[in-house]
Amino acid sequence: MERITRSRDIRLLTLEELQDLVKELGQPAFRAKQLNEWIHDKNVCSFDEMTNLPAALREKLSERFSFNVPVELVKQVSKDGSRKYLLQFSDGVSVETVGMPNRNKLAVCISSQAGCAMGCAFCATGLAGLSRSLTAQEMVDQVLHVARDFGERVTSVVFMGQGEPFANFDATVQALRILNDPDGLAIGARHLTVSTCGVIPGIRRFAELPEQFTLAISLHSAIQGTRNQLMPGVKKYTLLRLHEAIQLYVEKTGRRPTYEFAMIDGINDTSPEMQALVDFCAGTLCHVNLIQLNNIPDSPFRPSPIEKVESLQRRLTMHGVETTIRNSRGSDIDAACGQLKQRRFRAQ
């Protein structure tokens, strides 16, 4: 059932607007600071939690404003400790979000869109197409939801869930800045990573940002024909132009981009494919994340044998390319890369 919310989300008010509000309600000026602390520092989800505000004031606020936080429809817990959430926004649109604890750190993988229009052949998210882009607050709300559920501070966020962040560029950057704000969640810029399929205009704009946010590119093949087959949504952004845009990014920022390379048996794990990737990376500042393709039901693609993944890692390392093999988290609950598809899965 869809939730209909007509009142304004109080979290969207600036400090100045909160000051005007408490003045209008005949409250002392310090109430604005208290309100701001509850909303932005303590990340509460209701007026009832604002225990140092008078009950009468909380009632007045609840009549005019709301907390349009997403509703958790279902949660799954992986054997590795990761948790996947199906979150529904006030208009009934839902997305999936993943929390990944590791020792004293908590990483969150968030969605930037509900669904995706890129149509990557090996990714479950794109099978149902795009519903809509998310607002910056909806992206941040995913992080806040995970933080509340774990009862821990989030230390890093990756925009690697559903959607193409650079197809929703302005809202993505706004969300990055909210997450990075020292007066808010204060997550370091280098611990905020945006993953793109290779949308070149977005990469160029991203290179102009003053903050040191991290860039990841879903590459998956350095041979044009194979990449077109796997990633039809970015056919127009050729590998040659992509390489040029990434080098421009490196020159402007001095930062090391990451290439995501999901290895698919018989498709992009052949010797010519491996050599093409070595050539694409050699002599440039980059890091390659090798991933065994995560299984998707009814998909014709299968993961490469680990021996081939390790072979490619050795070839890249021999040519001076920084390379790691990523250990996918949450694959047993379809929470790993490429598996998010908004299924109404059974709670565990």
Rank of each mutant, 00 (worst) to 15 (best):
Q34C: 05
C109D: 02
R103L: 11
Y237G: 03
D265W: 04
Q212S: 11
F280S: 08
T317G: 04
T323I: 12
T155Q: 12
I10M: 13
F67D: 08
R315G: 00
G119C: 07
G184L: 12
V146I: 01
T238D: 13
A107G: 08
D48R: 12
M139F: 09
L192G: 06
G198Y: 03
F206P: 04
G151A: 09
A186G: 06
G225N: 14
E63F: 08
S62V: 00
S78F: 05
L230M: 09
G338L: 08
Q339S: 09
K236G: 05
E244N: 00
D332F: 08
Q342R: 15
L240P: 00
T323V: 11
P210S: 11
S299Q: 09
Q27H: 03
M263H: 06
S221E: 08
R344D: 13
G115A: 12
P257L: 01
F280E: 11
F345E: 12
F301H: 11
R83H: 09
Q224C: 02
M139Y: 03
P182V: 08
E152M: 14
V157C: 12
T270K: 15
N180W: 13
T214A: 15
F206S: 01
M100C: 09
I217G: 00
S218E: 05
S271K: 11
D170N: 12
F345A: 10
Q34S: 08
E260I: 06
E164T: 01
K75P: 00
I333L: 10
K235L: 05
Q88P: 03
